[in-house]
Design a protein around this nucleic acid. Structure first.
Lengths: 126, 126
DNA sequence: CGGGATCCAGTAGGATACTG
DNA sequence: CAGTATCCTACTGGATCCCG
């Protein structure tokens, strides 16, 4: 595969576009949750902590629109809808998990740095 | 290293926190640009396409606060400030680049899917 | 159960002008 | 050159009600 050593400035706008899509508050969480298995709407809602059904609906629509998840209507009288990752969605899950791993490993350091920074900059501020 | 096979739901909130920090419109672009070499303010501004000096300032502040970039004031009469990635920032650049690679490789597919979706859903819409 | 419609608050982000 | 301050808009995200 042709992965350049340094995806430089000109690539950044494209990266930014993708981040704008999947980098919102819920998308990657949904992707990670769906990665284990297909889920129904309220199952998802329970597993993605704190999401409103509004935002879950929106997020799923966006992901569906980009071909990252697939929506399957099962029944009709008790409306059952199943959401699953497409192959594309699964391929996205990999780098997302890499970033997730970084996040988990460095979250404390970040918070620590932040506290240190705030303390250092509050002595001079009003 | 202990990277679980599936960073499951409980980890997602933490991931979300980090994403909230670096997943904004400019942070990772700045990180990627700085990754090649330290840069001055207006150099950065030129390389990060479309950023206002307002947002660049904010972004750099946040990154500095989290210990991801280091700010160095050089002169005083012609104010020169250099920004460089910290080791932590460089470690973040890796997974970001992985995601960037995915973005570059799948951007067209995403846009294509989106067009297809929009076309399919406009026939029934108003 | 799944999700559309509406309303509303908070914030991200842009433009401009000013400062040291 | 490297910001700060102010203002303003658009979008994000939440709550609530309603519908099939």
């Amino acid at each position: 595969m042709n992965m350049p050593t340094s995806p430089d400035t000109r690539s950044c706008s494209k990266v930014s576009e993708v981040f704008s899509r999947v980098g919102d508050k819920w998308s990657m969480q949904v992707v990670v949750v769906l990665q284990s298995q297909p889920q129904r709407f309220n199952d998802l809602r329970r597993q993605v902590n704190g999401v409103s059904q509004q935002m879950l609906t929106r997020t799923l629509r966006f992901l569906e629109r980009d071909g990252l998840v697939e929506r399957t209507v099962l029944g009709t009288s008790p409306p059952q809808v199943s959401y699953a990752l497409t192959p594309l969605g699964r391929s996205l899950a990999e780098p997302v998990r890499a970033l997730a791993a970084w996040a988990l490993g460095n979250l404390e350091t970040l918070q620590d740095n932040r506290r240190h920074y705030d303390a250092a900059h509050e002595e001079g501020a009003k």
